[in-house]
């Protein structure tokens, strides 16, 4: 908080600048503030323009080194990495735009963890909405064990709203990035569905899990008795993207099964594998699991 004395000085300075010293502000700051404030409000013009979104800049193409020996060569190398290279400096620090961009990306990553998937989206997609034992995000972050368990009521809800013993059960979980679900889920679900059609396969109602950890799929596997459970879940966000999603897929998962039994497809986002293409690939993977009755390392070894 800015203390009162500081505030007074700031206001004085501002008013001095605005009035170019015509008004003796030091004598009666209070009234001057009131008058001037009213004036500023009435005088201020609202423009239609907007400040450019710094996160729109493609870092891979941003190159700020002045008088570089071989700028094309540097930029070519930059094409292979999303790392923040060639952004130059101001003294010993980053330039303002680089600093702001870093903070913006970091904020997006934090937001992705601490925000929730839009309820309207869950409704629109007709998901069966359930949640784990975590009561809020803080508990979700600090208690991974609770993020894989459901209350008896929730178990009941899952059972009632899914087809028992289905070949495929699709689950969506917020995980560590709600933004990832928001960005990808609408594209990937129909893509998986259509891909499965090619093999005469299909899936029924999709379960949505709030405060989900990956092993929550194991419990759902047991509850639904599905052959293959496919969990689409937000990945821990980084500074490159906050919208990366993973698919964890397992053949007949059970609670406390070894992690090696999961097959994972990561990096599903606009800069990685496009959601639509990933969905098409996942469909084929599921079909393969159903044929071989295996998943994870076991499936790799069977190939």
């Amino acid at each position: 908080m800015v203390d009162e004395k500081n505030l007074k000085t700031i206001i004085e300075n501002i008013l001095n600048e605005m009035t170019a010293g015509n008004v003796d502000v030091t004598n009666d700051v209070q009234s001057a503030v009131a008058v001037k404030a009213a004036e500023t409000v009435s005088q201020s013009k609202i423009e239609d323009g907007c400040i450019p979104d710094i996160t729109e800049v493609d870092i891979k193409k941003q190159f700020l080194v002045p008088h570089a020996e071989d700028p094309e060569g540097y930029q070519k190398m930059k094409q292979y990495t999303p790392a923040r290279l060639g952004l130059w400096r101001a003294g010993t620090r980053y330039k303002t735009q680089s600093t702001l961009r870093f903070r913006a990306d970091h904020a997006a990553a934090q937001d992705a963890v601490f925000s929730y998937v839009d309820e309207a989206l869950v409704k629109e997609m007709n998901f069966v909405a359930v949640e784990t034992l975590c009561r809020d995000k803080d508990e979700y972050v600090t208690r991974p064990d609770l993020g894989r368990q459901f209350s008896p009521e929730m178990c009941e809800k899952i059972k009632e709203n899914t087809t028992h013993g289905a070949k495929i059960q699709v689950v969506v979980g917020d995980g560590l990035s709600s933004a990832a679900i928001g960005a990808n889920i609408k594209e990937i679900i129909p893509s998986i569905k259509q891909g499965l059609k090619m093999f005469n396969l299909d899936f029924d109602s999709v379960v949505f899990v709030k405060h989900a950890r990956v092993p929550s799929m194991d419990k759902i596997g047991e509850l639904t008795d599905a052959d293959v459970v496919c969990l689409l879940i937000g990945e821990r966000p980084g500074l490159v993207t906050a919208e990366s999603m993973s698919a964890y897929i397992a053949y007949r998962p059970t609670v406390d099964m070894p992690e090696a039994r999961r097959t994972v497809i990561s990096n599903i986002h606009s800069g990685g594998t496009p959601a639509v293409e990933a969905g098409a690939y996942i469909a084929e993977l599921i079909k393969n699991m159903l044929d071989k009755k295996k998943s994870g390392i076991d499936l790799k070894e069977a190939e």
Binding site: S191, E277, A280
Partner: peptide
């Protein structure tokens, strides 16, 4: 662009 699997499956349908 990387979209042939999804496009192929759509065409197939």
């Amino acid at each position: 662009e990387d979209m042939a699997k999804a496009l192929g499956q759509s065409i197939h349908s």
